[in-house]
């Protein structure tokens, strides 16, 4: 009898507790910047695509849901297509960890529900954003050795100008 009353009381007490349920979608929960949600492709500070089509995200993906093809323009590598099948993605973030150029990033957006599975296949146009995402200021080509338009050979960070082969100086 007493136990029953106590249970009733405890249950009633919950009516005055702070609510854990969030009134989604009217009310949005706080998600930290490092939350692993929808995947995007970012751009470097110059506005060019950061992705260099190195395929490391694809190989790191445990569910094999990333596929891309390399192409090249003026010495810069790009993905010709970049495709993520979000109906397979487990949002583990391995792709972001594998990315050597900070191109692929997971964002705190998780609102990706679709009625038709094909709509969950994102192409490069769907993934590419116009900013640099979580890592402002980094540009892979400013540290890589290959020249790209706007950066001549030997002008990357910590590089000497190209060697003059005709010089005999030590």
């Amino acid at each position: 009898m007493l136990d029953t009353l106590r249970t009733l009381f405890l249950t009633a007490l919950h009516a005055f507790h702070r609510r854990a349920t969030v009134q989604y979608p009217e009310q949005k929960p706080y998600l930290p910047p490092r939350y692993r949600g929808r995947i995007i492709l970012s751009r470097d500070p110059d506005g060019a695509e950061r992705c260099v089509a190195c395929n490391l995200c694809a190989v790191a993906c445990p569910v094999d849901c990333i596929s891309l093809q390399k192409t090249e323009a003026d010495g810069r590598w790009y993905p010709e297509y970049f495709r993520i099948n979000f109906s397979r993605c487990i949002f583990c973030g391995f792709c972001e960890e594998a990315c050597p150029t900070y191109a692929i990033q997971l964002t705190p957006d998780f609102e990706m529900g679709e009625y038709a599975r094909p709509n969950l296949v994102y192409e490069k146009e769907d993934l590419l954003i116009s900013g640099s995402g979580k890592y402002p200021g980094y540009s892979f080509y400013h540290v890589a050795g290959i020249p790209v338009p706007g950066k001549a050979r030997g002008t990357s960070e910590r590089e000497r100008p190209p060697v003059d082969l005709h010089s005999l100086l030590p």
């Binding site: 694809a58 094999d64 596929s67 891309l68 495709r83 993520i84 599975r117 296949v121 192409e123």
Partner: peptide, 16 residues
């Protein structure tokens, strides 16, 4: 054993 893109490479044709 580490070929990538198995579940996506043809998903523009058919997602299955």
């Amino acid at each position: 054993y580490r070929a990538s893109g198995r579940t996506v490479i043809r998903s523009f044709v058919n997602v299955r």
